[in-house]
Design a protein around this nucleic acid. Structure first.
Length: 260
DNA sequence: GCTGCATGATGAA
DNA sequence: TCATCCTGCAGCA
């Protein structure tokens, strides 16, 4: 399930297709017309911004958003596609098929629409963006920092897991108003987000707990370790992790380690 | 087998 | 604030 790291990882995995022609089809049928339009075209670039994936095909841009349930996975191009696959992309030498399933968005865009997306989104921790615009917005806001971090116009790519974990790592309570955060806290939030999301790109999942020295690398088949997201007890102080509805999503915090 | 929730986001009310 | 969309899966009967 995707936060920003998933899309940036996918963009990296799809990069070998860039420069070549791509065969596009829609086994499920719901993107048949769009697939026909890009079928046989040369892929110029693939990139991720926030939770969005953008494929540049000369005159047209393919915009993909996975939403909550979407996924994109590679398979053998000789194999039969799963019937639910909205879009299937195969490279010209037919070495790999990429399958898009259950996206909330899969559509063709103009370059203007793509530019509008870039204007709308806040800085992306995985693109090396300058965080200052996000800091400015947070510092001027009465909204809670938990609410602000999920607003893609403030920071692009953070989802509910990273929100909970990053706030915990910096000792910031999700309910604190944006304007109450110190410069040091803002810097901590940004740096922690960059580090944790980069780790997410490397590992293909959201593991946030720092492995203890001498433990060696955590096995990738172990359950992802989290500090507070869906946890019962705080790993640091042993106190209860509380959870509550913060707007439309559930927030998690240790009230001791993240004072209000 | 069924229900409802989930690492997301939008549009209506 | 609510309903809605997309799917997989945990939890339940």
């Amino acid at each position: 399930m995707p936060e920003g790291h998933t899309l940036h990882r996918l963009a990296g995995q799809l990069r070998p297709l860039v420069g070549g022609k791509v065969a596009a089809s829609s086994p499920q049928g719901r993107f048949a017309e769009g697939a026909r339009h890009i079928d046989g075209r040369r892929l110029e670039t693939v990139e991720a911004i926030g939770k969005h994936l953008l494929f540049d095909f000369e005159d047209v841009v393919l915009h993909v958003h996975l939403g909550l349930a979407g996924s994109m996975f590679a398979s053998d191009p000789a194999g039969e596609p799963r019937p639910g696959v909205r879009l299937r992309l195969v490279d010209e030498p037919q070495t790999v098929a990429w399958n898009l399933a259950a996206p909330t968005r899969c559509e063709l865009w103009s370059h203007e629409e793509r530019a509008a997306l870039f204007n709308r989104l806040g800085p992306d921790p995985l693109r090396g963006d300058d965080p200052q615009p996000a800091f400015d917005r947070i510092s001027r806001s009465d909204r809670s920092i938990g609410d602000l971090l999920l607003d893609q116009a403030v920071v692009a790519g953070i989802g509910n897991v990273f929100r909970a974990e990053v706030l915990y790592c910096c000792g910031v309570h999700p309910n604190r108003p944006g304007r109450s955060l110190t410069t040091a806290e803002l810097s901590c939030l940004w740096e922690t987000t960059v580090n944790l999301m980069r780790r997410g790109v490397r590992e293909g999942r959201i593991s946030t707990v720092e492995p203890s020295p001498g433990d060696g690398p955590e096995p990738l088949d172990a359950p992802a370790a989290r500090y507070v997201y869906k946890q019962e007890a705080c790993r640091r102080c042993g106190g209860a992790v509380t959870s509550w509805a913060l707007g439309p999503r559930v927030a998690y915090a240790c009230e001791t380690c993240q004072p209000r």
